[in-house]
Design a protein around this nucleic acid. Structure first.
Length: 98
DNA sequence: CTTGTGACGCACT
DNA sequence: CAGTGCGCCACAA
């Protein structure tokens, strides 16, 4: 069984919404926490389902959001208290563990 | 049905 | 640290 169910999508949205300000989560963490088989699914959910989720708190494992969104995300995260160095977030400090 | 693409991750070089 | 290759799943054409 590899198809994604609504439950999985709901879990991802819940996890993202559960990320407190000043903290960020990686796609891999969310995918694992939601029980997804691949982190790509998380990105797919964010792209398709543009809900009111704080998707800007979701970044890659490299500690840096997507290239096109990086600038906007970093600025928004900076406003929340997430300090980024050279467009790179210190995951060690802000990585939210579920 | 096949192909291409994408808010990704990890291992290797 | 940066670049490359591969695996992964879902969707549009």
């Amino acid at each position: 069984m590899a198809a994604i169910t609504d439950e999985q999508v709901e879990a991802v949205r819940a996890l993202v919404a559960a990320i407190p300000p000043g903290r960020v989560a990686t796609y891999g963490d969310i995918a694992d926490a939601a029980g997804l088989s691949s982190p790509r699914i998380v990105g797919w959910i964010m792209r398709t389902d543009s809900s009111d989720l704080p998707w800007h708190r979701v970044i890659r494992a490299s500690g840096r959001p997507a290239p096109h969104l990086s600038t906007r995300q970093l600025e928004r995260l900076r406003a929340e208290g997430v300090l980024a160095d050279d467009g790179r977030v210190s995951l060690r400090d802000v990585r939210h563990t579920f």
